[in-house]
């Protein structure tokens, strides 16, 4: 394996910031080639840096608009939303249904 071939095999061996399943040819070349070591490390750092980036904050005004529009679409689709604070007590659902039949 030469430097060029190592680059082409990169996708199969660099998953995110991790080096994975190093095949023998790949690790052999890497062990003996300083430029390739640095390039591989640069790429892993690049990916880490993007992953570590600040999460983009959703503006509060949008958050509110979003909730409203989702709620009305939900009601169109599933019927009105009960106002009882049923915070996902699935195991209870069915129990607290008014038995008026």
């Amino acid at each position: 394996m030469n430097c060029e071939e190592l680059l082409k095999a990169l996708n199969d061996h660099v998953d995110g910031a991790e080096l994975t399943e190093l095949c023998e040819e790949f690790s052999q070349h890497l062990a003996g080639c300083n430029p390739c070591q640095i390039v591989v490390d640069n790429i892993r750092q690049t990916i880490s840096l993007y992953r570590a980036g600040e999460p983009y904050e959703m503006p509060a005004a949008f958050q509110e608009r979003l909730q409203q529009s989702l709620k009305s679409r939900w009601e169109e689709k599933f019927g009105s939303i009960s106002t009882g604070s049923s915070t996902v007590g699935f195991r209870e659902t069915g129990l607290d249904r008014p038995s008026e039949n």
Partner: peptide, 24 residues
């Protein structure tokens, strides 16, 4: 596929860089 041109180890690790305001 273009060959890497500027090859140098990074001066700081990514997790340290990520803390810097202008990096984002």
């Amino acid at each position: 596929v273009p060959t890497p041109d500027f090859i140098a180890p990074w001066a700081k690790p990514a997790d340290e860089l990520a803390q810097e305001a202008e990096v984002q």
